[in-house]
Amino acid sequence: MSPGQIAALVAAGAFVLLVLLLAIPLIKLGRTLDEATKAIRAAQERSDPLLTGANTTLTHVNTQLERVDGITANARAVTGNVSALTSLFTATMGGPLVKAAAVSYGISKAVRARRKRREAGSTRRRRGR
């Protein structure tokens, strides 16, 4: 055997050793990727019912929000009707009620003032006697 052939055999042996050393991490990486694939499939299978439940919940929430919108619209209409009724009452009865209240206040004030004068006059008469 010539030195070139020996060098070729050594190089071939080194190449086989290099391939074997690189094959071990590649096999481990393949196993890791297989486990990751299994975990992703399991997570997907478990998440399907969760997403279905979330979708159902959102559907119910949207239904309830539509009902709340209807209630809000009705409340807005009632508020407008009450405001109109209040304006109508103020326009028709407000003026006469204010006048009646002013008259009753004036009468009660006049009656009090008259009573005070009578009491003051009777007190003077008693002292004078």
Rank of each mutant, 00 (worst) to 15 (best):
G53R: 00
I71N: 08
N74G: 00
R46W: 02
A39M: 11
N62S: 07
A73N: 02
L50R: 06
T52N: 13
H60N: 14
P49W: 01
L85F: 01
N74D: 02
Q44Y: 08
Q44T: 12
D69I: 03
D48W: 14
N81M: 09
L51K: 09
E35D: 08
T72V: 08
T56C: 05
P49K: 04
I27V: 15
K28Q: 03
I40H: 08
L33H: 09
A75N: 11
T32Q: 01
K28E: 09
M93F: 07
V61P: 03
L50P: 06
V82T: 07
T57K: 11
S47K: 02
A84C: 06
T92C: 04
F89D: 04
E45T: 09
K38R: 03
V68L: 15
R31G: 14
A91R: 04
T63Q: 04
T32G: 05
T79E: 15
A36I: 12
L85M: 10
G70W: 02
L65N: 03
N81D: 12
A77F: 10
V61R: 07
L33D: 02
S83R: 10
L26C: 15
Q64E: 07
L58S: 15
G94C: 05
V68Y: 09
N55T: 15
A77W: 07
A39V: 05
T86V: 06
T79I: 11
P49A: 02
L50I: 00
D48K: 05
T59P: 03
T56I: 15
N62F: 08
D48V: 13
T72N: 13
T86S: 11
A42N: 13
R67C: 12
D48P: 01
A36P: 00
H60G: 11
L50C: 05
S47G: 09
D34I: 04
G94I: 08
G80P: 01
R46A: 10
G53A: 12
R41S: 11
A54L: 14
A54P: 04
G53T: 04
R67W: 12
A36Y: 09
G80D: 02
R76Q: 14
A77T: 13
L65S: 13
T90L: 12
A73V: 09
L65E: 15
Q44G: 05
E45N: 08
R46M: 04
R76K: 06
E66R: 02
L65Q: 00
A36E: 12
T86A: 06
D48F: 15
D48L: 10
L26N: 14
N74R: 01
N55M: 15
L65A: 01
L50Q: 06
A91T: 12
L50N: 08
S47F: 02
N55D: 14
L26H: 14
S87P: 04
A75I: 10
G80I: 04
F89W: 01
P49H: 02
T79D: 05
D69Y: 14
N62E: 09
L26T: 08
A91C: 09
L85H: 06
K38P: 04
K38A: 10
N81A: 12
T37M: 08
V61H: 10
T90Q: 12
A77V: 03
L26V: 15
I27Y: 12
N62D: 05
G94A: 00
T59S: 14
D69S: 05
